[in-house]
Design a protein around this nucleic acid. Structure first.
Lengths: 201, 201
DNA sequence: CAATATACCAAACAATCGTTCGGTAGTCAA
DNA sequence: TTGACTACCGAACGATTGTTTGGTATATTG
C-alpha cells in the first residue's frame, strides 16, 4: 500500500467522516463541492488514485472503503509510529476497536458491571464491564459469570470442576474459593467471560 | 406509529439487513429485484407507506432508517437478576457497552495494543487495547501513552512530574521507573489513557 | 531534457436514480 | 354498492450518477 498525497489524504478523510456520520458514500459532486472542485473529473481522478493505492474498493460502479478502514464504528487502532508522521494518520491504522465487531451484537452476548476486587490479579477490576457469552457448559479454567446463593447474585470467578463438586475460584489471595457440592443447586452459570471494557477518568 | 402489512414488513426487514450488511440504503430497483417487482413504482408506493408510518425518514430525495431502527451496536448491560426471569430479558437492560458511545468516535481518540506486563498491577495486561484521548498536558498521576527513545516506541505508564524532571512509572514491581531530565527530548506524550478493551478466548 | 505524476478544468456520455401518471385487481368495512 | 386500502403493472420524466475525453499547469525525477 503506497503513500498518500496531501490532497488524497484530505479527500479520504472526508469520505471516512461521511461514511461514519451519514452511513453512506458521498457522491463525486458532493466531494467536489466540499473541496471547491468544479469538475467531477478531478474527483474521479483522486478516487481512482485511492483505489489504486488500496484505500478504496470498487464494486461495480460503486465505491466502498477498504475493509480495514470500514468503520466498525469505534476507535481506530494505531500501530507503530514512523518518526515525524502524526500518530493518528490513516497510514498507521490497523483497524478499529469496537465491542460490537470484537464480540458480536447478537443476543448471545451481554455485559455485567463488576463489583468487588476478587479478580484483581486477573486484571478484572471493580467497575469494569465484563463481556459474557451465554453458555451453560464451560470448561474448567474458564473465567465465568455465575449467579450464586439464594439472591442469585452475579459473580465473576474462574470455574473449576473437581470430581462431582464445582469450585468458583477468585484471583485474589484475600479471597477463598466457593465450593458447590452435587445437587446443592445454589449456582447457575450465566456464561463465559470473553472480554472486558473499562472506562477510566 | 401504525401497524405494518406483511409485505411492508418484508421490505423493511430487507432494507435493515442491507444497511447493516453493506452499510447503504438499497435502490428502488434493487428492492424490486429482490421481491420480483418489475415496477419501481410499486416499491415507491411501499416506501411511501413506510415513511408515512414512521419507519423510514426522508432527507431530500434520500431515504434513511428512522433513528430507533438504526443498527444499535454494542452489547447490552444487564443488571440485577430477578429470580426466574432470563438474564438477558429486556427488562434487565441498563444500557449498552460500546466503545464509540463510551468514549466518542472523534478523531481525538485512538487505541494502542499493549505490549509487555509493566502495568499488570493496574489491570492493564499484554494484548489489551488501551483507549487514548489525545492531549499534550497530562496531570501527575494520570495513566498515559508516551513515545520514548530514538525509536519512539509506545509505552503505557503512570505519568509523574518531579520538579523539572518527569517520570514514567510502571505498575509492576519487576520494573523500574524511567526518568527524563529537562531537554532530554526523548519522550513525547501521546495522550491520556481513558479506557481499556480486552478480548479473551 | 523528456518523462512521469499530481492537480485541476469544461463538456458531454450513457446509466441509473427517485418520482409521477394512469391503469388493473383484490379485499374489507360502511 | 361505494369507497378506501393494499398490491401490483408499464411507461415516461427530469435529475443525478459515475465515467470519459481532451485539455492546461506545476512539480519532481532520472
Amino acid at each position: 500500500m503506497r503513500e498518500l498525497t496531501g490532497r488524497q489524504r484530505e479527500i479520504l478523510e472526508y469520505i471516512i467522516s461521511c461514511v461514519r456520520g451519514e452511513e453512506r458514500f458521498p457522491s463525486y459532486r458532493e466531494i467536489g463541492r466540499r473541496f471547491r472542485l468544479s469538475s467531477s473529473a478531478t474527483v474521479s481522478q483522486h478516487l481512482e488514485a485511492l483505489v489504486r493505492k488500496g484505500f478504496l474498493e470498487k464494486a461495480g460502479r460503486r465505491l466502498m472503503l477498504s475493509a480495514d478502514l470500514r468503520p466498525a464504528r469505534g476507535v481506530p487502532v494505531v500501530g507503530r509510529v514512523a518518526a515525524g508522521t502524526p500518530i493518528t494518520a490513516i497510514e498507521n491504522r490497523e483497524g478499529y476497536v469496537d465491542v460490537a465487531s470484537l464480540f458480536g451484537d447478537d443476543a448471545d452476548y451481554f455485559a455485567v458491571c463488576v463489583e468487588g476486587d476478587s479478580m484483581a490479579d486477573a486484571g478484572i477490576l471493580e467497575g469494569d464491564y465484563v463481556i459474557v457469552r451465554r453458555q451453560d457448559d464451560v470448561a474448567s479454567g474458564d473465567t465465568v459469570v455465575a449467579y450464586v446463593g439464594d439472591e442469585m447474585e452475579a459473580t465473576v470467578k474462574v470455574f473449576r470442576r473437581r470430581g462431582k463438586t464445582i469450585e468458583l475460584e477468585p484471583r485474589n489471595d484475600a479471597y477463598r474459593p466457593m465450593r458447590f457440592g452435587p445437587g446443592s443447586g445454589r449456582v447457575r452459570i450465566a456464561g463465559k467471560v470473553v472480554g472486558l471494557v473499562r472506562k477510566m477518568r
